[in-house]
């Protein structure tokens, strides 16, 4: 490892060694991006953008934090930008005010019979089963409107405060909770449909 680091002579005085970035951090950053975006092409783009942005700011990196932490912070900003753009595109298309009687009877608020949640019949301590469920969940996530995915992901992946997500994505608190509710209803229905 030390030999690898020594190759980056140009950057040595700058507390960082970009030559070794890909080898050291590319998989980690890609995993970080994928777990938040679930889109290979976008994740690859953002990893590349992160490295290039890092290069440009190299002289400002003072070695106060770990290189990995520093690059991850850049990536986080890129992901937030991506969410913002994606939600702007979809904001009009989703029609979140349109809470129709999907899943529920319009008057009583009862589950409509065809939409009754039924037990998945899975063993939560069976890793293979859980992995399979994860794969199906991924496919279901891909079908969500971009804004919904962004809201859901920011909330659960990054554990952000709801207020912060509302500010970032320009949502009211009421809209935020409608989206959280609709997202989960749709994800659950999609899992039920595709499981078994």
């Amino acid at each position: 490892m030390q030999n690898e680091t020594d190759k980056g002579l140009t950057a040595k005085s700058l507390h960082s060694d970009p030559i070794s970035w890909v080898e050291k951090y590319a998989d980690y950053l890609y995993g970080f991006a994928m777990s938040r975006l679930r889109d290979e092409d976008v994740a690859k783009d953002l990893v590349q953008d992160t490295f290039l942005a890092g290069l440009q700011r190299l002289n400002r990196f003072e070695g106060n934090s770990e290189e990995k932490t520093w690059l991850t912070a850049i990536l986080k900003n890129k992901i937030a930008d991506f969410y913002r753009k994606r939600s702007a595109i979809n904001l009009k298309a989703v029609g979140i005010e349109d809470e129709r009687q999907d899943f529920f009877d319009a008057e009583s608020g009862h589950w409509t019979e065809k939409d009754y949640p039924r037990a998945f019949g899975l063993e939560v301590d069976n890793p293979l089963m859980m992995k399979e469920l994860g794969n199906i969940l991924n496919e279901c996530l891909a079908k969500l409107p971009g804004l919904w995915f962004s809201v859901f992901s920011m909330k659960h992946m990054d554990d952000l405060a709801s207020e912060l997500i509302c500010t970032e994505l320009k949502l009211t608190a009421a809209n935020f909770w409608v989206i959280m509710h609709r997202t989960k209803l749709n994800l659950r229905a999609c899992l039920q449909k595709n499981w078994n």
């Binding site: 890609y30 777990s35 994740a43 991924n138 859901f152 659960h156 989960k184 899992l191």
Partner: peptide, 23 residues
């Protein structure tokens, strides 16, 4: 049942580890 499954979905979503993805 909905509540159980909703919690499960969150677990699966968050638990999909970073390490599962390789370039």
């Amino acid at each position: 049942i909905y509540q159980q499954q909703s919690i499960l979905i969150n677990k699966v979503f968050v638990g999909f580890g970073n390490a599962d993805f390789k370039l």
